[in-house]
């Protein structure tokens, strides 16, 4: 999946000469936390986040009313040399950038111009879409040995029951090194006959587990 499929294309941005007051109002009105700063050519030259603004403003507990601060240009508080992404970047790669660089948003730049923005919330939503149920379905979890062709063996059982698979996630088994966990979302309400067949084929079906339980 590439960034242009998930990025927000309506981007709220300001210019370096705009004031802190402008930024405060825009963040509040649009309920956002990040503002790319662009020059008159539409190039990204900085970023102002909610935290930059909080740092700039006096504590709300102080009784000082220094209105001047609100009229300072954003230029004075923005972060320069920011990390940006491209519409053709892979979502998996930018997720890693978010994690490693500990950032909260990534302005997306193409042909020198700001064309979109991705935030941590967008990545979370993407995760929800990957792992959640957007069509009526049941989830089956299977522990399988980490060997070539195992997914084929498992999906043969689904094929036999003519059940459509909505999503498959594969992740490492935390307990056993040479095993993987398959988490498969299938479009079926009664998975019992499939589970029975999976067990007959020797697969370790973790869930649904029958009364006996292992939470």
């Amino acid at each position: 999946m590439i960034v242009e499929e998930i990025m927000n294309t309506t981007v709220f941005s300001l210019q370096p000469s705009d004031t802190i007051k402008d930024a405060v109002q825009l963040l509040k009105k649009e309920r956002i936390r990040h503002l790319p700063i662009t020059n008159s050519a539409g190039e990204v030259i900085g970023l102002v986040t909610e935290r930059d603004i909080k740092n700039a403003l006096p504590s709300s507990l102080l009784k000082i009313h220094d209105e001047d601060i609100f009229y300072q240009p954003l230029e004075n508080i923005m972060t320069k040399n920011i990390i940006v992404g491209h519409p053709l970047d892979f979502v998996e790669e930018i997720a890693l950038i978010f994690y490693e660089q500990r950032i909260g948003c990534l302005p997306i730049v193409s042909a020198g111009k700001l064309v979109g923005i991705v935030t941590g919330t967008d990545l979370l939503y993407n995760y929800i879409e990957l792992t959640g149920a957007n069509k009526p379905s049941s989830l089956i979890e299977i522990r399988v040995p980490d060997v070539v062709g195992i997914l084929f063996e498992v999906t043969k059982v689904f094929h036999k029951h003519r059940v459509s698979v909505l999503s498959v996630l594969v992740y490492p088994d935390k307990e056993l090194d040479n095993m993987k966990i398959l988490s498969i979302r299938v479009k079926i309400m009664n998975p019992l006959s499939i589970i029975e067949d999976l067990r007959k084929e020797g697969f370790d079906v973790l869930w649904p587990n029958m009364p006996g339980m292992n939470l």
């Binding site: 149920a133 069509k135 009526p136 379905s137 049941s138 989830l139 089956i140 079926i188 998975p191």
Partner: peptide, 9 residues
């Protein structure tokens, strides 16, 4: 909970 059980929603 629909975490595992049909229909998931």
């Amino acid at each position: 909970t629909g975490r595992y059980l049909f229909p998931g929603t």
